[in-house]
Simulated assay, not measured.
Amino acid sequence: MSKFVLIAGPCVIESEENVMLIAEKMKGIAEKFDLDYYFKASFDKANRTSISSYRGPGIDEGLRILQKVKDTKGLKICTDIHEPWQAEKVANVVDIIQIPAFLCRQTDLIVAAAKTGKIINVKKAQFLAPWDMENVVRKIEDSGNKNIMLCERGTTFGYNTLVVDMTGIIEMKKFGYPVVMDATHSVQKPGGNGTVTGGNRTYIEPLAKAAIAVGADALFFEVHPDPNNALSDGPNMVRLDKFENLLERVIKVYDAVH
C-alpha cells in the first residue's frame, strides 16, 4: 500500500444531515494528510444488544445517502452487510463490503460478497484465533476474489470484555493480504451497559499506535460529532473535532515504521 489507508465514519446512519456533516469534515482530513480514505457508515445494525435499540434507516434509504456522499464529496464508501441478498445491491454503491465479526464464518454471506468483485473487509470474530481466518480467506479466493482485507477488532476475554493481542495482526499478515486494525470496536465492552454495549474510548489512540507499530496496514475508526448522544456505539467513538489531532499523532508512528 502506497498511502496510509483509513476507514472511518459514524457507526450507523442516524440522518442524512449527520452523515453529510461527518463526510465533509473527513474529506478535509483525508485531503490534508493525503490518505487512501473510505467513508464508513452502516444502513442497518442488525446485531444490536437490545431489540429496542436504533438500527438505522434500512438498505434503500441508507444506500441513497451513501450514494450522495460518493457523488457530492467524491469519497469512496464502506458499509457492512448481514444477509447474502444484500451483497449485489450494496455493490452498486460501495467500494468495500464489510463482513461483521459475528458473521465471518457464514459461508453464504462470504461467497455472495466475494462474487461482487468488491474489496471484502472481514472482521475477525471475537471468538476466533487469528490463524483460523485462513479458512475465511480461502472462501473468498475460491469465489474468484482476491481483493481481501482482514480486520482485527479484539478477542473475547471473560464476560463483557475484549482484549487485543497484537501478535494476531502479525499472524493474519502471513496470508498475504492487508490487515486493518479496528481501533474503536476493540475498546468495546459488549453488552457491558445492560441493554447497550459499553466501552472506553481512552484506549483508542494507544491501540491504533500499537497496531501500526507491529505492522497493521490500515486503521478503522468510528467518529461522531457527539458520541455521548450517538444512537449506536457512543462509548467507543472518537469525537469528530478531536479526530484530526489524534490521527496526526498516529501518522507519526506510521511514518516512523515505513
Rank of each mutant, 00 (worst) to 15 (best):
V179Q: 00
P190G: 07
G168N: 05
N121H: 09
T197V: 09
G192L: 02
N145A: 08
C151A: 12
I169D: 06
E171M: 15
T202Y: 15
G194I: 10
N160P: 13
Y159R: 06
C151N: 09
G198C: 07
H185E: 08
P178T: 00
Q188W: 02
V180C: 03
E205P: 05
T197Y: 07
G144T: 10
G198Y: 09
K124I: 12
F127L: 09
T195K: 15
N121W: 04
S186C: 02
F127S: 07
M166S: 13
C151D: 02
G191S: 07
K189L: 15
G158P: 14
S186Y: 02
F157W: 14
E152Q: 06
G198N: 08
T197M: 02
L162I: 00
P190R: 06
V164Q: 00
A129N: 11
N135P: 00
H185C: 01
V196Y: 13
K146M: 05
T184A: 05
A125L: 05
P178W: 00
M166A: 13
R201P: 11
T202F: 14
T195C: 09
N135F: 12
D142H: 06
G194N: 13
V137M: 06
D132N: 02
T161Q: 15
E134T: 08
V164C: 03
T195S: 15
K124R: 12
D165T: 11
D165E: 13
P190Q: 09
M133V: 01
E205M: 11
N200P: 06
G176T: 01
T155R: 04
I120K: 09
Q126S: 08
N193E: 14
M149N: 06
V179T: 01
G154Q: 10
L162W: 00
T184R: 00
Y177S: 12
F127N: 03
R201C: 12
V180N: 00
E152H: 06
N147C: 00
I120Y: 04
L128M: 15
K174W: 02
G176C: 04
K173G: 03
E141K: 14
E152G: 03
A129D: 11
E152S: 02
I204W: 04
V122N: 12
V163K: 07
V164I: 12
N193C: 10
I120V: 15
G158M: 13
Q126M: 11
W131E: 11
K139P: 01
T167A: 15
S143W: 08
K123A: 10
A183P: 09
N135A: 15
K118I: 04
N145W: 07
A183T: 09
D142Y: 09
G158F: 14
I204K: 05
R153N: 07
L128R: 01
R153M: 03
D182E: 02
Y159K: 05
D132A: 08
T155F: 08
N160R: 15
D132E: 15
M172P: 03
P178K: 00
G194L: 08
T156H: 14
I169S: 05
K123W: 06
E205W: 07
V137C: 04
L162N: 00
W131V: 11
V187F: 13
A129I: 03
V136A: 05
G198T: 09
N200Y: 11
C151H: 02
